[in-house]
């Protein structure tokens, strides 16, 4: 922005193009300056060749030396420990794009594997019993209490003081030899 009365800054659209034409003047050649120019050109070419050679040589040397040197250094330090001590792995994990990772994980296969392994359909069948379990359990509880009531009366009529032993062996008992 320019305030009124001020000179406009450079770069506000006004460009000054300066064209200088060097007019060669024949007969004004200076042998010394030509020689100097030639020498400069020669030095430049030599420098360029040296530069390329040296750069290539140094690069080749570094290619060989650096891996060895790094290996030697890494061999002497416990990189895992350093990473564990100094790197905030949680931050790295937090910044990771989980969606992309999950996209690569076969989630459906894993889910199917889990369902197969724990036999989920069987658990559901057993938990629900195919029928409203709560209602059935309530009915069973009712008959169980009536059973106990009748047993108690029968036991007292027969002067059975200890009550009755309704325990039955299960196959797990017989399998373990009890």
């Amino acid at each position: 922005m320019t305030t009124p009365g001020e000179q406009p800054d450079e770069g506000t659209g006004q460009e000054v193009v300066l064209v200088v034409n060097q007019v060669p003047s024949p007969g004004a050649t200076n042998p010394v300056s030509e020689l100097v120019g030639l020498a400069a050109g020669l030095v430049g070419a030599v420098a360029s060749v040296i530069d390329h050679t040296v750069t290539a040589g140094v690069n080749a040397a570094l290619d060989r030396v650096v891996p060895i040197a790094v290996n030697v250094v890494v061999d002497r330090i416990d990189l895992t420990k350093i990473v564990l001590e100094r790197v905030d792995i949680d931050a790295i994990v937090a910044s990771a794009n989980m969606d992309k990772i999950i996209d690569r994980v076969p989630m459906v296969d894993i889910a199917n594997y889990i369902i197969d392994e724990i036999d989920l359909p069987k658990i559901i069948r057993e938990s629900t019993g195919g029928i409203a379990t709560d209602a059935v359990n309530a009915a069973r509880m009712q008959t169980l209490s009536i059973d106990e009531f009748i047993n108690k009366i029968a036991d007292s009529v027969m002067f059975r003081r200890k009550g009755r032993n309704s325990e039955s062996p299960t196959s797990s008992d017989s399998a373990s030899g009890q």
Binding site: I123, S127, L144, D147, E148, I150, N151, E167, T170
Partner: peptide, 25 residues
């Protein structure tokens, strides 16, 4: 997991011989 749905009171009765009313029903 299948045993979880059995009422607490009935758990001790599992594996015991049942009474007359249950069987008659």
């Amino acid at each position: 997991p299948a045993q979880v749905v059995i009422p607490e009171k009935a758990k001790s009765k599992q594996g015991h011989r049942s009474g007359i009313v249950t069987r008659a029903l």
